[in-house]
Amino acid sequence: MDETGKELVLALYDYQEKSPREVTMKKGDILTLLNSTNKDWWKVEVKITVNGKTYERQGFVPAAYVKKL
């Protein structure tokens, strides 16, 4: 869990989004888990830094590609 009590997951593999509802992740990324009720796709939040500014983006990743921490 992070400092706000949200559950975290670890990306076990790289994943490139294939639709606007998904998010890209790299092996080793730590993501915030938002919803894991679907056994195949989990909703996560990723933080992306571009030119020194951090953005948060929500989307789905394959559940088999992440592990709860």
Rank of each mutant, 00 (worst) to 15 (best):
M1R: 05
M1A: 15
M1L: 12
M1Y: 08
M1E: 14
M1S: 15
D2Y: 03
D2N: 12
D2V: 14
D2R: 02
D2H: 13
E3Y: 04
E3I: 13
E3D: 15
E3M: 11
T4P: 10
T4C: 12
T4H: 13
T4D: 10
G5D: 07
G5H: 09
G5V: 12
G5I: 12
K6N: 09
K6R: 13
K6V: 12
K6S: 10
K6E: 09
K6T: 10
K6Y: 11
K6W: 08
E7W: 12
E7C: 10
E7T: 12
E7F: 11
E7Q: 14
E7N: 13
L8V: 08
L8W: 11
L8Y: 13
L8P: 05
V9E: 00
V9L: 09
V9M: 04
V9S: 02
V9W: 04
L10H: 04
L10Y: 12
L10M: 15
L10P: 00
L10S: 05
A11S: 06
A11C: 09
A11T: 03
L12Y: 03
L12Q: 05
L12T: 04
L12H: 02
L12V: 08
L12A: 03
L12W: 03
L12M: 09
Y13V: 11
Y13S: 08
Y13R: 13
D14F: 03
D14A: 06
D14I: 01
D14Q: 03
D14C: 04
D14H: 05
Y15R: 02
Y15A: 01
Y15F: 07
Y15N: 01
Y15W: 11
Q16H: 11
Q16E: 13
Q16F: 15
Q16T: 15
E17W: 05
E17D: 04
E17G: 13
K18V: 08
K18P: 04
K18W: 03
K18E: 10
S19N: 11
S19Y: 05
S19P: 04
S19H: 14
S19G: 14
P20D: 12
P20W: 07
P20G: 08
P20E: 09
P20R: 09
P20N: 09
P20V: 09
R21C: 12
R21M: 13
R21E: 14
R21N: 15
R21L: 11
R21Y: 14
R21P: 04
E22M: 04
E22W: 02
E22P: 05
E22H: 06
V23T: 05
V23C: 07
V23Q: 02
V23G: 02
V23N: 02
V23K: 00
T24W: 03
T24R: 05
T24M: 03
M25L: 11
M25V: 11
M25C: 05
M25I: 14
M25G: 00
K26E: 07
K27T: 06
K27V: 08
K27M: 07
K27G: 05
G28K: 02
G28R: 02
G28I: 00
D29M: 10
D29T: 06
D29F: 02
D29W: 07
D29A: 05
D29I: 03
I30G: 01
I30A: 02
I30V: 09
I30K: 05
I30Q: 05
L31E: 00
L31N: 02
L31C: 07
L31K: 00
T32I: 14
T32Y: 10
T32N: 07
T32K: 13
T32H: 08
T32D: 05
L33P: 00
L33S: 01
L33I: 04
L33K: 01
L33N: 01
L33W: 01
L34M: 07
L34A: 04
L34H: 05
L34C: 06
N35M: 09
N35A: 10
N35D: 15
N35C: 09
N35H: 07
N35V: 07
S36K: 07
S36N: 11
S36G: 11
S36D: 14
S36H: 09
S36L: 04
T37P: 03
T37Y: 07
T37R: 06
T37L: 11
T37M: 09
T37E: 13
N38K: 07
N38E: 11
N38Q: 09
N38D: 15
N38Y: 09
N38G: 10
K39N: 12
K39Q: 11
K39I: 09
D40C: 10
D40A: 10
W41D: 01
W41G: 00
W41I: 03
W42G: 01
W42L: 04
W42Q: 01
W42C: 04
W42E: 01
K43E: 13
K43G: 05
K43F: 14
K43N: 06
K43C: 10
V44Q: 00
V44R: 00
V44F: 00
E45K: 12
E45L: 11
E45N: 07
E45H: 07
E45F: 05
V46P: 02
V46F: 06
V46S: 09
V46Q: 14
V46T: 15
K47E: 07
K47T: 15
K47Y: 09
K47L: 11
K47G: 06
K47C: 09
K47P: 12
I48P: 02
I48G: 06
I48C: 10
I48K: 12
I48H: 09
I48W: 11
I48T: 14
T49Y: 13
T49W: 11
T49E: 12
V50G: 06
V50T: 08
N51L: 08
N51H: 10
N51Y: 08
N51M: 13
N51Q: 10
N51V: 06
N51R: 05
N51E: 14
G52N: 09
K53I: 15
K53D: 10
K53F: 10
K53Q: 14
T54N: 14
T54Y: 11
T54M: 13
T54Q: 13
T54E: 14
Y55N: 09
Y55R: 06
Y55P: 02
Y55C: 10
Y55M: 14
Y55Q: 10
Y55I: 15
E56I: 15
E56K: 15
E56C: 11
R57P: 01
R57M: 05
R57L: 05
Q58A: 11
Q58P: 05
Q58H: 09
Q58G: 06
Q58W: 07
Q58I: 13
Q58M: 08
G59A: 03
G59T: 01
G59M: 04
G59P: 01
F60V: 07
F60A: 02
F60K: 02
V61W: 00
V61G: 00
V61S: 00
P62L: 03
P62Y: 02
P62F: 02
P62G: 01
P62M: 02
A63N: 02
A63D: 01
A63L: 01
A63Y: 02
A63P: 04
A63I: 04
A64R: 09
A64S: 14
A64C: 10
A64F: 08
Y65W: 06
Y65N: 05
Y65E: 03
Y65Q: 05
Y65C: 09
Y65F: 12
V66C: 10
V66S: 01
V66A: 03
V66E: 00
V66N: 00
V66I: 08
V66Y: 01
V66R: 00
K67E: 12
K67I: 13
K67N: 06
K67T: 12
K67Y: 10
K67L: 14
K68I: 12
K68T: 07
L69E: 04
L69N: 04
L69W: 09
L69G: 03
